[in-house]
Design a protein around this nucleic acid. Sequence first.
DNA 1: GTCTATAAAGCGATAGAC
DNA 2: GTCTATCGCTTTATAGAC
Lengths: 190, 190
Amino acid sequence: MAKGTIKAASERADLLPLISEVFRSHGYEGATLALIGEATGLGKGSLYHFFPDGKAQMAAEVLAEIDHWFEVNIFAALRKSDDPVRAIAEMTAGVDRYFHSGHRVCLVGVIALGASRDIFAAQVQDYFSRWNDALALALRRAGFSAGVSRRRSADALLTIQGALVLARALDDAKVFGQAMADMKARLLAK
Amino acid sequence: MAKGTIKAASERADLLPLISEVFRSHGYEGATLALIGEATGLGKGSLYHFFPDGKAQMAAEVLAEIDHWFEVNIFAALRKSDDPVRAIAEMTAGVDRYFHSGHRVCLVGVIALGASRDIFAAQVQDYFSRWNDALALALRRAGFSAGVSRRRSADALLTIQGALVLARALDDAKVFGQAMADMKARLLAK
DNA sequence: GTCTATAAAGCGATAGAC
DNA sequence: GTCTATCGCTTTATAGAC
């Protein structure tokens, strides 16, 4: 790999979190190149230099980065941990951290509901179904039946998404904290 | 009221459900006047005749119509019924019907997460908080403490929203049906 | 690698004929 | 009440100077 490539890749990686926040707060359609340019301090020319396919490529890479974060910080432990109860506790802690205790919205959920749904449907479905599978596996290893594990796993995922929606709608982050506590209790209840 | 007014009002009312579906499937930003014209069979001129303030007015009236449907079909019974358990059962049945068993998305939730959030924040917050209050009141009348009632009420609302998000993301409406059954059980559990 | 200028298309909204 | 034509603006995306 040439020097230039490495440097570019490094700066490119720094761009994604900034772009990510623009998509989060404005949605896919609302995130204009002007806003992205403002957030990154880059002109359109530079943005198209890094992302030749434009906005769609930016969103796809942002989704991939989010996916990767969850894969590393959440899914992996759920799949491999020999202490599934602890992995689940770490999941709830990680989720709370990631979503800033309910102040931050889930971009994957935003896109799932939004108009750009069709473009990113595969990525969205993959993200949730891998999370769902990993969590169900942890529950199974914690001693629950296959049916219970799958039901509780879906319940947890939908609770997170719903809590983010309602916290945003009511402008009350406490809703999220309470929901995460309830979810954790339901996940491991006898 | 003049004949013309009545006729116009009648046709206008017929317009809203058609426009509503455009907002639902494309979001506020994605719902262009071209798409709305297609769905209604009306040109821009006619649309602006009915809605002088354009797209924002259309969305506001669609939200008001949704609010009214829930007020009449769900909230009222929760507040007034002398059989709160039955009112809650009717709520879950009504919700299942309204959201087409998970195949239809919640426009209020879509807007709460989307880029147009700020414009409609008051309407969105009002809708959810009135639902929340009505359901909590029914639970209180069913014998639960104020704290339990409020917690369970918020849990139910967020479960509905989350189930719609996850069902859409996984493209699997069964997720919604299971979540509604779970929600109903949790709502009235001892 | 970053910028400005600009193209090409689509947007919401308006005007005015009918 | 409905239409067509069009305005003014913003959008994504490209071209080319530096």
